[in-house]
Amino acid sequence: MPDVLEVRWHGRGGQGAKTAAVLFADIAISTGRFVQAFPQYGPERMGAPVVAYNRVSSTPIRLHTPIERPDYVLILDPKFIGKRNLTAGLSPRGTVMVNTPRRPAEMRQALNLPGATTVCCLDASRIAEDTIGRNIPNVPMVAALVKILQLVTLEDLKDFVREQLEKKFRGQPDLVKGNLEAVDRAYREVERG
């Protein structure tokens, strides 16, 4: 995990890109780091493209500028590939993580990424369907990012997510259980290429 990390999330309204950035910030802050989470605001509609950002740093963050050269790009909806410039500004040794059942080598080709970049794949939509019964891939994607960064251990991550979700989904223990299972699977299944 570098001293300063900049992340960009690409999703669609309803996929939880903004929530993903907030959850990731919450996890990072729990490790004693400084964080920012902010979406790019536009018309809010189900299905419309959504972009959200994170800054994570070991020292206080003073910048209030847009993130133009992210270290990590997370693609929640692979249908964007080929239609939008998802890797704009990606740092030369950056990482792209895609919600897809395909392999990193295929994704590297599809996104036309040079060898110095890292490509990670996770079938987050499948995990979400299996565990919470809905295609909301944000929680597994956050878990996979935490794993790749080695930000916290799986046990700590599950404890944290449990605590957050028990507050958010009071009286819906199935949803909490499903999301924890999603975290578990994402942590194990994310493939780095």
Binding site: M1, I29, Q150, L151, F160
Partner: peptide, 11 residues
């Protein structure tokens, strides 16, 4: 892998 530590901050 860093263990979670107490933080005085909230997000």
């Amino acid at each position: 892998v860093l263990a979670q530590k107490e933080t005085r901050y909230r997000a």
